[in-house]
C-alpha cells in the first residue's frame, strides 16, 4: 500500500504556494508536513483529501480498497471541527457513524474519554472538548489514510498524548498518516515533508 505524489504544485489566489513537490508514503509510515505559516500546508492536505485542486501533478494510492476513491478512504480533520452545536456528543458521533457507513460509537467515546460528557449538547463544550469530539471521528470509522491539519490545537497535554497514541496505533496497524503540526506529537513520524519558506 502506497500513497505517492508526483511533481505537485498548488496555487492560491494566483500565487504559487509550492511546486515540484514529490513524496511517497508506505503503509505504516507517518509523514510530518512542516513549513512556516502560509507555505501551503493546509492547501496541500486539503488537495490530497480531494477538497482542493492541484495546479499540476497528481497523487495516486496503490493497494488500497479497489474501486474506491482516495477521499473515501481518508479522514480529514482540519481547522473546523465539523461538530453540530445543537446535537449532543453521542448524536454527533451517531450521525457520522451512520453517514460514513457504520462505526463503533463506544470506541470513539473511549478514544478521548468523552463518556462523562456524552449526553451534553456540543454547544456547551469547550474548544478543547470540541476538538476531541472532532478527532474521535478517527476512531469511529476505520479509514486507511489520516490527513490531519494542526490536530493538537487547543488540546491539553494529556489529550495530546492520547492523540499521539492514536496516531501511533494507526500507523502500527498499517495505516497511512500525514499531519501538519507545530507541537511535538511523539515519534510516529518517520518522514518529513518541508514546504518552502515564504516571506511573510
Amino acid at each position: 500500500m502506497r500513497l505517492s505524489g508526483e511533481d505537485l504544485a498548488c496555487e492560491r489566489g494566483g500565487r504559487m504556494l509550492f511546486s515540484g513537490l514529490s513524496f511517497t508514503l508506505e503503509a505504516g509510515q507517518g509523514m510530518l508536513i512542516e513549513g512556516p505559516n502560509g507555505s501551503g500546508k493546509t492547501t496541500l492536505i486539503r488537495a490530497i483529501a480531494g477538497l482542493g485542486r492541484f495546479a499540476r501533478g497528481h497523487i495516486a494510492l496503490s493497494g488500497g480498497v479497489a474501486g474506491v476513491e482516495l477521499d473515501e478512504q481518508a479522514h480529514y480533520v482540519g481547522h473546523a471541527d465539523a461538530v453540530k452545536p445543537q446535537l449532543s456528543v453521542t448524536e454527533n458521533l451517531a450521525f457520522w457513524a451512520g453517514y460514513l457507513g457504520g462505526g463503533d460509537i463506544g470506541r470513539a467515546l473511549d478514544a478521548f474519554g468523552l463518556h462523562p460528557i456524552a449526553d451534553l449538547p456540543a454547544q456547551v463544550l469547550s474548544a478543547g472538548q470540541r476538538r476531541k469530539l472532532a478527532l474521535s471521528r478517527l476512531a469511529l470509522v476505520p479509514r486507511l489514510l489520516w490527513l490531519l491539519d494542526e490536530p493538537s490545537v487547543s488540546l491539553d497535554r494529556a489529550a495530546q498524548q492520547t492523540l499521539a497514541g492514536l496516531m501511533a496505533a494507526h500507523v502500527a496497524g498499517g495505516g497511512l498518516l500525514m499531519a501538519s503540526t507545530h507541537m511535538d506529537l511523539g515519534t510516529v513520524f518517520s518522514k518529513n515533508l518541508r514546504l518552502g519558506a515564504v516571506a511573510a
Partner: peptide, 17 residues
C-alpha cells in the same frame, strides 16, 4: 451555510455517497 462554515461539508464530501 452552517455545514460549510463548521467544516461538516468537508466530511460530507468525503463520504462514499
Amino acid at each position: 451555510q452552517a455545514d460549510y462554515e463548521d467544516g461538516s461539508l468537508d466530511a460530507i464530501v468525503m463520504g462514499s455517497m
